[in-house]
Computed example of a mutant assay.
Amino acid sequence: MAPRAYWKGSLKLSLVTCPIALYPASTQAEKTHFHQINTKTGHRLKQQMVDEETGRVVDKEHKARGYELSKGRYVQIEEDELDAVKIESTHTIEIDDFVPSEDIDERYLDKPYYIVPNGKAGADAFVVIRDAMKRKEKVALARVVLSNREHVIALKPFGKGLLGTTLRYPYELRDEDDYFDDIPSPRVSKDMVDLAAHILDTNASKFDPSKFKDKYETALKALVKRKAAGKTIEVPEAEEQESNVIDLMDALKQSLGRKKSKMKPARRKRAGSRGRGRKAA
């Protein structure tokens, strides 16, 4: 059963409009989640808001939003005052312009959504917009209001539908210079770079997310299963960290040698199987 649409509205390109529905393309539902419980009763705990100065529990009617102007000094903002800055939800994703996909800095990519036509009435217009974007190999930049905030959203053809990805605003990104300025610039030999590049070539493959294995999630599920069955959980001893003092060229050569040693048994196995086949015939 398909999940309920997160947002419904219209997609508009100039004078062409079609009804659409937007669905989150990712989910956290399959991840293992824990609740806080009382170790004495086994009952689930609930959180309470506590005044950090008095230590007393604050009831619901005395809770409000406050913006910290300076340390310990707040300006209180009422809910109806927040309504004054709410962005009017037009329920329309209006395309502003089109850009090459490679022009979008990956740091700006936020949350992905699947966009589909909402009903058969606007399917023709949806397909026209999708196929025109596919032909021109362009990504559409538009605006959409989600949870009372306006977001820039990038739209691109994806299978039979569209993939919409909300984008971060520039103020949400940290300046890379704050982190990269202190990176040293040592002189490394061309031989080292060539060897490293060769290692990259030997490990080249196609992007295949089916190979992604969440080892922690798998181990977590196994731990919960063992604990629920009444088995004892033994914590392994921490392994000693290897020394970081290495000879870079030697490490590169060993890395290449390790790759070759992994490949050789597979070739021998195939040759052996062919030989056995001929003998059996």
Rank of each mutant, 00 (worst) to 15 (best):
H43W: 01
P265K: 02
G55D: 01
G55V: 05
G66Q: 06
I233V: 04
W7S: 09
S185Y: 04
L200G: 00
Y179L: 08
V16R: 01
K227W: 05
G272T: 06
K213P: 13
S70G: 10
V139H: 09
V127H: 05
A29Y: 00
G66P: 13
P117D: 03
T41D: 09
K160F: 11
V116M: 11
V58F: 04
G66N: 10
K190N: 03
F207R: 04
K63V: 12
L22I: 15
K269E: 11
S70T: 11
A154Q: 06
R44H: 07
V235L: 14
M1D: 06
L252I: 06
V116L: 08
L173R: 03
L200F: 02
Y114C: 02
E94K: 14
E78M: 12
K215M: 11
L220H: 09
R258L: 10
V57T: 11
E137K: 13
V75W: 00
D105W: 05
R73T: 11
S205K: 10
D105Q: 10
S185M: 05
S255V: 08
V139I: 08
I104L: 15
R268G: 14
H151Y: 13
K71S: 11
K262E: 15
V152F: 08
P265R: 06
G72E: 03
F158R: 00
A154T: 07
R107C: 10
D51H: 04
N244W: 02
E78I: 03
K264D: 13
K221W: 07
A2T: 07
K215N: 12
F98V: 03
R107H: 12
Y113Q: 03
R278N: 03
R143L: 07
A29K: 10
E150K: 09
K63W: 00
E30W: 00
K111P: 03
E81Q: 07
R73E: 11
R130W: 03
K120F: 06
N203T: 12
G9C: 07
E30M: 02
K71W: 00
K138G: 06
G257L: 15
D178C: 02
A204T: 02
G55H: 01
A5V: 09
P3G: 04
K86W: 07
P3Q: 06
P3E: 06
P236W: 12
T232L: 08
V57D: 02
A121V: 04
R267S: 14
F34E: 00
E68W: 06
V144W: 00
S261W: 03
K12T: 13
E52V: 10
A142M: 04
A29P: 00
V152T: 15
V99F: 10
V50H: 01
P112K: 03
K211G: 13
I199K: 01
K31A: 13
E102F: 12
L162T: 05
G257Q: 11
T32I: 11
I199C: 05
G272W: 01
L109R: 05
A251F: 04
A132D: 00
Y67K: 05
Y67N: 00
H62Q: 07
I20Y: 15
T27W: 04
S26V: 14
K253R: 08
A121T: 04
R226T: 01
D194N: 02
A25H: 01
T165I: 14
E88C: 02
Y169F: 15
V139E: 08
R143D: 13
I129T: 09
G275E: 09
R73N: 12
K269D: 08
M263Q: 15
M249Y: 05
S255D: 00
